[in-house]
Amino acid sequence: MHHDTGSPELAFPAPYLMNAPTVLTATDNAAGMERRARFTSDVEAFEQELAAFHDMIVNGTPPRTGVTGALDDLTTAQRAAARFAAQHRLPCAGETKTA
């Protein structure tokens, strides 16, 4: 994704590589200069999700993304699927067609 002031890039490793880091690189083009920041994590996403779920059940901690966030995620996924279908002249129906 690119915009006037910079761009973020998220690179996922191959799914069969255990503990390979996901890398987030943020590029900032403010004031005509480029600045890069790189963040990596080798913690498995599923393990983080499982720990957060456990915390919600055991300690009553609210989820980081509530119903509104979940709806936003679904809408974004539906729009991506609809765009892909349109670009490749594939049929698209249901909620995705009108997302």
Rank of each mutant, 00 (worst) to 15 (best):
L17G: 04
L24N: 04
S41F: 05
C92N: 03
M18G: 02
Y16I: 02
A37D: 15
Y16T: 07
A45T: 08
K97S: 09
A86M: 12
Y16H: 11
A20C: 10
T96W: 04
T65L: 10
T98H: 05
G32I: 04
A26K: 03
R36T: 09
A52Y: 06
A31G: 00
T98Y: 03
T27Y: 08
H2P: 03
M1G: 13
T75F: 02
G60T: 08
E47S: 14
A80H: 05
S41I: 03
A80D: 10
N59D: 14
G60A: 12
R36D: 00
P91C: 01
R79Y: 03
A20D: 11
N29K: 08
A30P: 01
A99C: 14
N29F: 05
V58A: 13
D4L: 12
I57R: 13
R83K: 09
A30M: 07
N59Y: 14
A45M: 11
A51V: 11
A93T: 13
N19I: 03
L17P: 02
V67G: 01
D42V: 02
P21V: 00
T98R: 07
T5M: 09
G69C: 13
A70K: 02
T27C: 07
A70P: 05
A37G: 12
N29D: 11
L10C: 07
E95Q: 10
L50W: 10
T61I: 06
A31T: 06
R64P: 05
H3I: 02
R64K: 13
H88P: 02
P91Y: 03
G69F: 08
A52I: 01
Q87G: 11
A85P: 05
P13F: 10
H88A: 01
E95P: 01
A52V: 01
F84V: 03
A26F: 06
C92G: 03
A86V: 01
A85Q: 00
R64A: 13
D55L: 12
P62N: 10
F12A: 13
Q48W: 08
D55G: 03
D42R: 08
D42E: 14
F53M: 08
A82R: 14
L74N: 05
V23S: 04
E95N: 07
A86E: 07
H88G: 04
H3K: 08
A37E: 15
A51K: 15
P13A: 11
R64W: 06
E34L: 11
L90F: 03
G60K: 07
R36S: 08
E47Q: 15
R83F: 04
D73E: 13
V23Y: 01
L24W: 10
K97Y: 01
A93Q: 09
L90H: 02
A31Q: 11
T75E: 11
A77F: 04
G6M: 04
R64H: 12
F46K: 10
Q48V: 12
L50E: 15
F46L: 15
L71V: 09
V43F: 09
H2G: 08
Q78G: 01
T25C: 09
R89W: 00
L10H: 06
F46E: 10
E9Y: 00
A85N: 04
L74R: 09
T75L: 12
E49P: 01
T98L: 06
